[in-house]
C-alpha cells in the first residue's frame, strides 16, 4: 500500500522537533481525519536554514512532513512556496489516493509557518 520511501520516512522520520531560534511556526489540523501537523522554521537571509516538525496521524501524514522537511531545507522562501502537494507525493514515490490529504496538510502547514514570520 505504501511505497518504500514512505515507509522509510515513517519509520525513520527526519527533522523531528522544535527548531532553535525559530522565525516561524504553524500548526494545522485536518478536522475530518484528525491529522495534526506542526512546523517550525528558521529563515536566515531568505534561506530556510532549519526546519522541524511534529505530526499526529497515519503513516502518510508523518512521512509527508518528514519528506517535506528534507526537501525544503536550504531553499529560499520563494522556492518553498512553489512546492505543491503533488511534488511531495512524487518525492514520496506516490501515495494511495485516499492518503494525499496528508501531503496537502504538510505543504499547507509549512507555508503557514513561513508566512507567520517571527514568533512573538
Amino acid at each position: 500500500m505504501y511505497s518504500p520511501i514512505v515507509l522509510d520516512h515513517f519509520h525513520h522520520p527526519r527533522h523531528v522537533g522544535v527548531v532553535s531560534a525559530a522565525t516561524g511556526h504553524a500548526r494545522l489540523e485536518n478536522p475530518v481525519c484528525g491529522d495534526v501537523v506542526e512546523f517550525w522554521t528558521r529563515v536566515v537571509e531568505d534561506r530556510l536554514e532549519e526546519v522541524g516538525f511534529r505530526a499526529f496521524g497515519c503513516a502518510a501524514a508523518i512521512a509527508s512532513a518528514s519528506m517535506l522537511a528534507e526537501l525544503v531545507r536550504g531553499l529560499s522562501s520563494r522556492e518553498v512556496l512553489t512546492l505543491e502537494a503533488a511534488d511531495l507525493v512524487e518525492a514520496l514515490g506516490g501515495l494511495p489516493p485516499s492518503k494525499t490529504h496528508g501531503a496537502a496538510l504538510a505543504v499547507e502547514t509549512l507555508r503557514a509557518a513561513l508566512g507567520e514570520g517571527v514568533i512573538s
Binding site: 515507509l7 515513517f10 481525519c33 496521524g57 502518510a60 501524514a61
Partner: peptide
C-alpha cells in the same frame, strides 16, 4: 494514530487491526 501503530507492529511481525479514520477511504 491506529494505522501508524499497526504499521509499527507489522514491522516487528505482529499482525493487528484498526478502525481508525486513516485506515478507510471515508477518513472517518
Amino acid at each position: 494514530e491506529g494505522e501508524s501503530l499497526l504499521l509499527q507492529l507489522d514491522r516487528k511481525g505482529i499482525c493487528v487491526s484498526t478502525g481508525s479514520a486513516c485506515s478507510n477511504a471515508t477518513l472517518e
